[in-house]
């Protein structure tokens, strides 16, 4: 069987398949359904310095092959996460990636410090949440703001730092270059695309928050294109995500330039999606007699 081991930003991953932040809680629920040690890693639900209740419901709308969500970073706050959730997560035998959002640069740095001390494997800096008023994507849509958050987190963190990019920009490669120059160890992309649905009978948006983030198979080609653009712009490794639901999708994302991939929304349709993606990657590698999964990253042959 092909070797799935990948060293990503200095961290060993036993498979290149992780689960995406916001789709997997803190692992407990899916832990009742399958063995989480089969995952390369878990990106936990987005954390903020203080607890957040999130946005009012409805927070989800179905779209052609996807969903819009407007959860709004509901979470118990970084301290309670460290106290109540991280000890459990550390027993699972998989990498734990803490996803952090701040309203200010200082908040990001404070969380990075706390989480480094608590012993997460990697920090994912969310500068791309479309569903919050303060912070969120505001940091991810300008090179200067993205770089200043990255610099502050890098100064505070003692574990590798991955910056999660928003697709809601004119040139994602430019943002990727800015965070690489600011010291990011890796980037992850894409976060959700800002979208909207309207109930034509009530004339009201389906989401209480009016707009939300689009994810699922519908966004997959956009994500592949952006990973490919970022691959050409930076040297740091990429965690590719956006609509991956099969092993073939994951291989495609890796050919575009991803070193590892995240599976998210697909879990809502198939709770075993991340495992099936992993099995699909192995099948592809074996069929093509490729020994190590790292051999396919960025190997798209352009026309």
């Amino acid at each position: 069987m092909a070797d799935l081991n990948v060293t990503f930003a200095g961290v060993p991953f036993k498979t290149p398949v992780v689960v995406a932040s916001g789709t997997f809680g803190f692992g407990r629920e899916y832990g009742e359904i399958f063995d989480l040690s089969r995952l390369g890693g878990i990106c936990v639900k987005g954390l903020t310095l203080r607890p957040r209740l999130g946005n009012p419901p409805p927070r989800i709308a179905e779209t052609p092959m996807g969903i819009l969500n407007s959860v709004g970073l509901q979470n118990p706050g970084v301290d309670r996460f460290i106290e109540e959730e991280l000890p459990y997560l550390k027993t699972l035998g998989t990498n734990i990636i803490a996803n952090i959002s701040g309203e200010t640069v200082e908040e990001y740095a404070e969380m990075a410090e706390k989480l480094s001390d608590a012993g997460v494997d990697l920090i994912e800096v969310n500068i791309s949440c479309p569903n919050v008023k303060a912070g969120g994507a505001a940091f991810g849509t300008s090179c200067d703001a993205a770089a200043s958050v990255t610099r502050a987190v890098k100064r505070a963190a003692r574990v590798p730092v991955m910056v999660k990019l928003t697709p809601n920009v004119t040139d994602i490669a430019e943002i990727a270059r800015a965070v690489e120059d600011a010291g990011a160890d890796a980037v992850s992309l894409i976060n959700t695309l800002l979208g909207m649905r309207i109930d034509i009978n009530t004339r009201r948006p389906v989401l209480k928050n009016n707009t939300g983030g689009l994810s699922g198979p519908a966004v997959f080609p956009v994500a592949v294109r952006m990973v490919w653009q970022v691959r050409r712009a930076v040297k740091i490794p990429i965690c590719g995500m956006g609509g991956i639901s099969t092993g073939e999708d994951a291989v495609e994302m890796m050919l575009a330039g991803a070193d590892i991939v995240a599976v998210g929304t697909a879990l809502f349709r198939d709770p075993f999606a991340a495992i099936r993606v992993t099995e699909g990657i192995v099948r592809y590698l074996d069929e093509h007699q490729i020994e190590n999964v790292t051999e396919i990253t960025g190997k798209v042959l352009l026309n």
């Binding site: 789709t23 809680g25 407990r28 629920e29 009012p56 409805p58 927070r59 989800i60």
Partner: peptide, 17 residues
């Protein structure tokens, strides 16, 4: 009743205050 996503408690879309 609320619009649901994952159904298992992981995605937090079906919130009740």
């Amino acid at each position: 009743e609320e619009r649901m996503g994952c159904g298992v408690g992981a995605c937090l879309v079906c919130a009740c205050k």
